[in-house]
Amino acid sequence: MLAIAEYVVRGALSGAIYALLAVPMSLMFVTVRTIDFAVGAYALIAAAVCWSVGGALGLAAGLGAAMACAAFMAIIFLALKRLGCEDHIIYALASFGLATALASLVLWWWGTQAFVRDAFSDPWSVGGIRLAPQGVINFALILLLVGALHLLIQHTSLGRMMRAAAANQTGAALASIPVQGIQVGTYLAGGLLGGLAGLLVLYSAGLDFTAPLGLTLSGFGAAIIFGIGSPLRGFFGGLAMGIAQALAAGYASAMVAGMVPFLFVLLVLTTSRFGEEALAGGRP
């Protein structure tokens, strides 16, 4: 029993990273109705820059670099819109191009090395389970952040505007809500949150130039499991995915463990009732 509990706790802690990546995904999906494939690349850039600079300044520099890349993505988005492109798939493909380019820049500048740093050396023991302090801190930080975001979206006027822009772009624009500004803001938030995820991974497991696509897809998977509509659901989606992965790693074969996240996504997408509306309003 303790063994199962241990896997669950470990899975939840590691799932927090997915949860953090899921938040920008669901924000993006709701306000722009697209995927920013480059979120994983923002994480990589943040980790690489922070690793090079080091210290508290490194954290700021990492986040700044990630935000700068996200700003670049926002510019591409605006340019596409200005050129009359309303196809969300094109936005997604452009962000895929950016992700590829960023990962390649990291490979060119930093080489193939892994980025990893240590803040703590001794694990804490909680109820007989040894945990890394960093993991617990990650979890608490992410919980706090998601909670704050949830409050922001549900209970502030900015949040109301965001929800309005998400529900009906034309209507919101008519009500003089700066829809485009909100969408750009969402891209920037993706950079901030993706960058933060990168820093947290840097201080826990570490990552290298091959990481971006995997991070993006984990985040997206986590975002859709319980419906993409709100960051809170994304948070629990991330936890669920982490726990499922940990349990599969603990009790199933390598093959099954590898398939779990994908089967999870397939199962949710193909069976859930809330899929139709929550997943970007179904088909026209």
Partner: peptide
């Protein structure tokens, strides 16, 4: 085992 992109290997 784990795939290349695993972020957590405690399990």
């Amino acid at each position: 085992s784990a795939p290349y992109t695993a972020t957590d290997l405690t399990a």
